[in-house]
């Protein structure tokens, strides 16, 4: 489904020591991963570990310095910051129609857009009269649902979630995750879930990749999470366990 092989990425340093120097700060080191059809994989890592960069590599916004990427089928993305992920000048219906028109073009078919928009809004659990609303007239959870509708409208094989639920409150997070699970089952989708939040991963994913300082340090099935070996993965796991035990 998605195969990454020995991806290396670096960015030009702004504070080079030499005049016209081309030093690079390497962000990802030999990252390899494989995602199967219908799987949900979690990319877990702290800030600056390169997980968002990896996300951009997967959806083709960035080209790696070396290594190969192989993604089959269309891929769609849902961003963390819902406030900027929809054009503030578009209505909900225009936002979703953008994806629909791309699908029309790539699949060479004609879509009844109005009907399809209604259908998608129903799917993500929003009332139908939202079509004329603008992003600033929606709450965070509602707008994130619109973004999910937009991502699903493309009929992708894979959806990438870049911290897609981190900025929502706990209750909305659970609602959105349930919605995502429902959609996943309905369309047989593959999910790549980038996050720093271990709890949502355990709720949601089949397999977890721990990313630490640009390297994949650990790969585990969610059911095997207790048996992680790397220090970072352990500390992450224990920090949550600690909070839980404190509550008791």
């Amino acid at each position: 489904m998605i195969t990454l092989d020995k991806i290396n990425v670096g960015f030009r340093k702004e504070n080079t020591t030499k005049l016209f120097g081309k030093e690079k700060k390497q962000v990802l080191f030999d990252v390899s991963m494989h995602v199967n059809q219908g799987e949900c994989i979690g990319l877990l890592g702290e800030s600056g570990s390169g997980k968002s960069t990896l996300g951009r590599i997967i959806c083709g916004l960035l080209k790696p310095d070396s290594g190969t990427i192989n993604v089959t089928g269309p891929i769609s993305i849902v961003f963390q910051d819902y406030t900027t992920s929809a054009n503030p000048r578009f209505t909900v219906s225009q936002i979703i129609k953008e994806s629909l028109s791309v699908r029309e073009r790539t699949q060479g078919i004609k879509i009844e857009k109005e009907e399809e928009v209604q259908h998608l809004l129903e799917l993500v659990g929003l009332p139908k009269d939202f079509v004329t609303r603008y992003p600033h007239e929606l709450s965070g959870g509602q707008l994130q649902r619109v973004c999910i509708a937009r991502a699903v409208a493309l009929q992708p094989k894979t959806i990438l979630f870049d911290e897609a639920i981190s900025s929502l409150d706990a209750h909305t997070q659970v609602q959105i995750m349930d919605l995502l699970l429902k959609i996943k089952k309905q369309f047989n989708l593959t999910y790549v879930f980038i996050t720093h939040d271990l709890t949502s991963v355990t709720y949601f994913c089949d397999r977890v990749l721990f990313l630490y300082q640009g390297r994949v340090v650990e790969e585990k099935k969610v059911t095997d999470l207790a048996r992680v070996e790397h220090d970072y993965a352990k500390s992450l796991l224990y920090s949550i366990v600690d909070i839980r035990s404190n509550e008791k």
Binding site: L61, F79, S85, N87, V102
Partner: peptide
């Protein structure tokens, strides 16, 4: 580099759409 432009690029929308529907109105 706003997310809506990134989204358009990610799903492979036309450059003309990004230029005239996203960037120009902004």
């Amino acid at each position: 580099d706003t997310n809506y432009v990134l989204y358009s690029r990610c799903i492979g929308n036309k450059e003309s759409f990004i230029l005239f529907r996203h960037l120009l109105p902004s």
